[in-house]
Amino acid sequence: MKEKEAVSAVKSTIPITETTRFVGGFTPLLPPTPTRRAAFLRAIQNAKNLPATEADAFQIDTLMTVFECSRVVSQEAIDRVVAYIRKRREGLPSCRFDFLDSAFFSELLRNFPDFNACPSKDSFSFSPSLREQFIHRPQWFTHVDILYIPVVVGDGHWVGIIVDLNMWSMYVVEGNSACPSVFALTSVITPISIMLPHLIGCYCMTDNAQQLHYAPLTMSRLEIPCLVEHPGCSSVVALMFLELHAIGKELNSVYFNEEHVRTAAENYAIETLQMCQPGSVPPAEYLAMSALCVCCHIFFLVLAT
């Protein structure tokens, strides 16, 4: 009976394809060309050969963990990819969502001990770095209704957090319901659900938090049919779910497998490096134009003969 139910669940899902477009037209499931893969790997190798002082200034080799999906991806590498997603998001001026880097979530957690000990929560002074989010990014409630945040839990498992400001709710999305455990997830998410209303009360141009008496955001874990168990893939899985939700896909019916994730991982790494170091990897548009030029050249040679 369980096997029949599992087959039925898979049949009711909607697979994503190579042509599925994410935020800003990004097609992560279309395999990168051999030229772009080789250029990326060459750039990573060159970065490793740089003197320590120069390498530390950029550390592009951290993107290799994203590219390979062989081990837990660092927060720094994920935040570089988030910067790339944000750049694509900027091309959609009418969208009502934003992506936050994982450093924002980590900094909020670091504030929790002092926040918890503060007798007057509504007057707590948050870290200056948290304030930056409200100065340099689209304003919550005014321009943004949904927030997307990749979050690392426990010993390195990544999940995606969807914050619905209007519903005053937080949703967890990941590709392996057995990991992390409910306890590990709750220990990380609960402090955030408690502090976010006070952060909103401090920096957002709305009185929603005050009207709700700073009630914590509700939390739930979405049931998703995908199963990708490799821990090195969890960060890319989380990013994919967040982007799919941002473009309006129903996550409880969408389906992809580990092969899809590994292809997406390579594209995320390659495109992020291209954004950070223009010219290190030839843009896809440049390759297409080069191929067209070669074809035209051959055509005119044939005519000439």
Score class of each variant (00 low, 15 high):
118 C>T: 14
118 C>M: 04
118 C>Q: 07
119 P>D: 04
119 P>F: 09
120 S>A: 07
120 S>L: 10
120 S>F: 09
121 K>T: 12
121 K>Q: 05
122 D>P: 07
122 D>C: 08
123 S>K: 14
124 F>M: 06
124 F>I: 06
124 F>T: 04
125 S>I: 15
126 F>I: 05
126 F>G: 04
126 F>D: 03
126 F>V: 06
127 S>F: 03
127 S>V: 02
127 S>Q: 11
128 P>A: 08
128 P>H: 11
130 L>S: 06
131 R>D: 04
131 R>W: 03
131 R>K: 15
132 E>W: 06
133 Q>K: 12
133 Q>M: 10
133 Q>A: 09
134 F>A: 00
134 F>H: 04
134 F>C: 01
134 F>I: 01
135 I>E: 15
136 H>L: 04
137 R>S: 12
137 R>P: 01
137 R>A: 07
138 P>T: 05
138 P>R: 07
139 Q>D: 12
139 Q>V: 09
139 Q>N: 12
139 Q>E: 15
140 W>V: 01
140 W>T: 00
140 W>L: 07
140 W>A: 00
141 F>P: 00
142 T>I: 10
143 H>V: 03
144 V>L: 07
145 D>N: 14
146 I>K: 15
146 I>R: 14
146 I>N: 04
146 I>E: 09
146 I>W: 14
147 L>C: 09
148 Y>N: 01
148 Y>A: 00
148 Y>L: 03
149 I>E: 01
149 I>H: 03
150 P>C: 01
150 P>W: 01
151 V>N: 01
151 V>H: 03
151 V>F: 05
152 V>S: 12
152 V>E: 08
154 G>Y: 13
154 G>L: 09
154 G>H: 09
156 G>F: 08
156 G>V: 11
157 H>D: 09
157 H>V: 15
158 W>P: 04
158 W>D: 02
159 V>N: 05
159 V>Y: 03
160 G>F: 05
160 G>M: 05
160 G>D: 01
161 I>A: 06
161 I>F: 06
161 I>Q: 01
162 I>L: 02
165 L>I: 07
166 N>D: 10
166 N>K: 15
167 M>S: 15
167 M>D: 14
167 M>P: 05
167 M>T: 07
168 W>K: 04
169 S>W: 13
169 S>C: 10
170 M>Y: 05
170 M>A: 10
170 M>G: 04
170 M>K: 03
171 Y>S: 14
171 Y>C: 08
172 V>R: 12
172 V>E: 09
173 V>A: 09
174 E>A: 05
175 G>M: 09
176 N>I: 00
176 N>Y: 15
176 N>M: 10
177 S>R: 12
177 S>L: 11
177 S>C: 07
178 A>H: 09
178 A>Y: 08
178 A>L: 12
179 C>W: 08
180 P>Y: 11
181 S>F: 06
181 S>C: 04
181 S>Q: 08
182 V>W: 08
182 V>A: 11
183 F>I: 14
184 A>Y: 13
184 A>W: 13
184 A>P: 08
185 L>A: 03
185 L>C: 14
186 T>F: 11
186 T>V: 07
186 T>W: 11
186 T>R: 15
186 T>Y: 13
187 S>C: 13
188 V>L: 10
188 V>C: 11
188 V>E: 09
189 I>F: 03
189 I>P: 03
190 T>D: 08
190 T>V: 14
191 P>M: 05
191 P>T: 08
191 P>D: 03
192 I>C: 12
